[in-house]
Design a binder for these strands. Structure first.
Length: 771
DNA sequence: TCTATCACATTTTTT
DNA sequence: ATGTGATAGA
């Protein structure tokens, strides 16, 4: 039995055993890509390639950790260098910092730090934000860096008007970063790429040090990453990249789809392997995904197939409004958990935009279904955490202006905006860090003597903290808390019993420090801790283990899989997003986004849209996403849950909203019902026109209950009746209670004389005799 | 210098 | 609906 080579398909084995020369692995969703990559590394090691010569680059920490663990399992021994691009660059910069004008204790700015710095740069450059925004400028600068454009190389380059201002800010921003001995995320890549380009002997050394390079999710690489990878594989072209053009959803962040589309041109001797067999989804789901993505032009053809058994038809539900959508999905989940042995963790609800999870949250909470939201901002973005980390950063790198600005007056020390403006002016004039400017505050004439005293006291605090810099992280952090009286500050700024969260978060950070000390008994430096923290993301915190329904954006769902998936808000202007409508490239990316969502599903999938969607506080009509037209309707189950709503029985919107004719939204759905599984195909539903107004109905939830109740007429049951249950056998109905969807029967079973209660709308009770 | 109030915008966000 | 950022007043 060969752990590494057995149980692989032919294409998989071909990829695993490929050793020298470039390789492109086109891996469809659920095709066992991670398995192939890890097995290939194990194979390389077994064939005698030293672990130190292998470098595997991923985009997420999670992917890197997972691969590392799996390789360790297959081939225990010296670990292979597996990390994210950014972590790799962080290490390189640490080692070769002087080549790009940094010191080795440089800081890594997160988005917030970077934006704050840009804001300063904008002020310094004297540009008005009236025709643009900070976000736009930040985006543009990020793009410059991803395109390997330095401020110098951009001089004289013609730019669209939208980017002109950003280009003006760019050099000022870079200057501030340099003075602060700091980099932002994009800089890390840019610096390393430049370093490799400008230092041929270093490039060569690293090229032969990392003889075997693997890149995961290659479709998401930007130009900077591309340049780094190419530089490291000029002499030793043992570059294996894996990816799927159809799953490229980060174009807006600078990812260049051409990197993977042109890989075969870049490396003519490339060996291309296609992994087309899917192990994840039912054929039904896969066909829907495949048919959708066929509409894209910028792709490499893959013929996806699976040997998995046929499953339930993919559902498309059209709801009257977003609340009904949320309630119905929550009801479905409850039903599946109660009666079909599902757990909350089997479900994922995906959406284009974060705010769409709100109504779902509400519906789940009211039904006491546990859920988590995977959001962009979490623990390390919390104010108290950022504050404390800023103290640590300042100790590690006193030039870190972003950290200083954050905590110079937190807790309050009487150093306000006016003072800091003067300090900043002085710092900018002398091109020195803020901390140095504060140390030299005697030279700043505009600052009053009293304030100088306050500034000096601040310097004293930082100095005393710095003297502790080499103690354990836990001690250091506790010392910071003590010296700055930060805990008191939190307690005082607390409104009324509300904010004990903040103190708990502080405790959690201390725990993280303790844990770090434990894991790094010898090499634990402040620098390492800060680097680790800076490059952590919040999606990493998502615990797979907890038994909860997962709510997240389609972007966050990449790489994950769930038995049951709901994709909500499949509406025009939402998916595709209205800002991606015009540009065909972006439009295709939106289609890929839906493709990614669909292919997360293992067993069941429901796409849904609402005819009315509340956005920005008000109800607006929504039209079907154009992508819905591209799906194979004939094999899907289309359910138009059109019902009158609390928003008016004579719903004006109904007439106004335009639906593609092919969808036949309001027609009778006998066809569709015939595709339902038998238990859902009761005479009641077919004979009751679904558009009939139900006068007494007030909320969407009640409507749904009614609807459900109608599927099985509860009134056919009477007390004393003998019924049969699939699990417990025969029994007698003792009593009946409730009404509508809550109509409940208490049954005493003959087999054990135990009474059990069932909701008639859900339970599978069959009548054996009337008496 | 701090605090309260108001206007404003609001896609997605691996690092 | 909700949060953030700027501004004005204490």
């Amino acid at each position: 039995m060969d752990l590494i080579l057995d149980n692989l398909t032919d294409p998989q084995r071909a990829a695993v055993t490929h050793m020298d020369g470039p390789m492109l692995m086109l891996a469809g969703p659920g095709s066992g890509k991670t398995r192939v990559v890890t097995h290939r590394i194990a194979h390389l090691l077994r064939e005698g390639v030293p672990a130190s010569q292998i470098l595997a680059l991923t985009f997420t920490n999670k992917a890197a950790e997972e691969m590392l663990a799996r390789v360790q399992q297959l081939a225990p021994g010296e670990p292979v260098w597996m990390s994210t691009f950014h972590r790799f660059c962080a290490r390189m910069l640490r080692q070769y910092s002087s080549l790009v004008g940094l010191q080795e204790n440089y800081s890594i700015y997160d988005m917030a730090d970077a934006k704050a710095t840009m804001k300063r740069a904008i002020e310094v450059s004297g540009i008005s934000l009236s025709h643009t925004s900070l976000d736009q400028i930040a985006n543009a600068i990020s793009h410059f860096k991803n395109q390997l454009l330095t401020p110098e190389s951009m001089e004289g380059v013609n730019l669209p008007a939208g980017k002109m201002l950003a280009a003006k800010v760019y050099p000022y921003y870079q200057q501030l970063l340099l003075v602060a001995n700091a980099v932002d995320f994009d800089c890390m890549l840019l610096h390393v790429a430049r370093m490799l380009r400008e230092n041929p002997e270093l490039r060569e050394a690293l090229d032969s040090r990392f003889r075997y390079i693997m890149v995961d999710e290659y479709q998401d690489t930007n130009l900077a990453q591309y340049a780094i990878v190419r530089s490291l594989s000029v002499v030793h072209q043992n570059l294996a990249v894996t990816g799927d053009p159809d799953q490229s959803i980060y174009g807006w962040r600078g990812a260049n789809l051409n990197n993977i589309l042109d890989f075969e041109n870049d490396y003519p001797q490339v060996k291309t392997v296609r992994l087309e067999q899917n192990y994840r989804s039912t054929p039904n789901i896969l066909r829907v995904a495949d048919q959708l993505i066929t509409n894209n032009t910028r792709r490499k053809h893959k013929g996806l197939y699976t040997h998995n058994p046929e499953g339930a038809a993919v559902r498309l539900r059209i709801y009257a409004n977003g609340y009904q959508e949320a309630d119905d999905i929550a009801d479905q989940i409850v039903e599946q958990i109660q009666n079909h042995g599902r757990s909350p963790k089997d479900f994922a609800i995906l959406c284009r935009m974060n705010y769409l999870t709100r109504s779902l949250e509400h519906s789940l909470r009211s039904r006491v279904v546990p859920y988590t939201i995977v959001r962009g901002v979490e623990f390390y973005q919390r104010k108290e955490i950022k504050d404390l980390l800023s103290y640590l950063q300042l100790i590690n790198n006193p030039a870190n202006d972003a950290a200083l600005s954050r905590i110079v007056n937190t807790p309050a020390r009487g150093i306000g905006k006016t003072t800091m403006d003067r300090v900043m002016l002085f710092a900018a004039r002398h091109r020195i860090p803020l901390f140095e400017a504060i140390c030299r505050c005697d030279e700043i004439e505009s600052i009053k003597p009293r304030t100088r005293g306050l500034l000096k006291r601040f310097v004293g605090i930082i100095d005393s903290l710095s003297r502790k810099a080499s103690s354990s992280l836990e001690d250091l952090l506790r010392f910071v808390l003590e010296q700055t009286q930060y805990s008191d500050y939190l307690r005082f700024s607390t409104v009324e019993g509300e904010d004990n969260d903040a103190l708990a978060n502080v405790d959690e950070l201390v725990s993280a420090a303790v844990e770090f000390d434990r894991q790094h008994p010898d090499d634990g430096s402040l620098e390492t801790f800060l680097e680790q923290v800076a490059l952590i993301s919040d999606t990493d915190a998502w615990e797979e283990s907890s038994d909860r329904v997962t709510l997240m954006t389609l972007h966050a769902a990449k790489g994950l899989e769930f038995p049951c998936v709901y994709i909500i808000g499949v509406e025009d202007q939402v998916l595709p997003h209205h800002r991606s409508h015009d540009d065909p490239m972006q439009f295709e990316e939106e289609r890929r986004l839906l493709f990614v969502g669909i292919t997360r599903a293992e067993q069941t999938l429901q796409l849904s849209m609402a005819k009315l969607r509340s956005a920005r506080g008000s109800m607006r009509p929504a039209a079907a996403s154009p992508f819905l037209l591209e799906l194979p309707r004939e094999e899907m189950q289309v359910i138009d849950a059109h019902q009158p709503t609390q928003y008016g029985d004579d719903n004006d919107f109904d007439v106004d909203v335009e639906y593609p004719e092919a969808w036949d939204m309001h027609a009778d759905h006998d066809d569709d019902l015939n595709q339902l599984p038998p238990e859902e195909r009761t005479p009641e539903t077919t004979s009751t026109p679904r558009t009939a107004p139900i006068a007494s109905v007030t909320t969407a939830a009640q409507m749904l209950e009614q609807q459900m109740a109608n599927t099985i007429d509860p009134d056919i049951y009477t007390v004393g009746m003998i019924v049969s249950h699939p699990e417990y056998g025969s029994g007698r109905i003792q009593s009946l209670s409730g009404s509508g969807g809550k109509r409940t029967a208490t049954v005493n079973f003959f087999v054990d004389s135990i009474e059990r209660r069932f909701r008639l709308s859900h339970a599978q009770l069959t009548i054996e005799s009337e008496d």
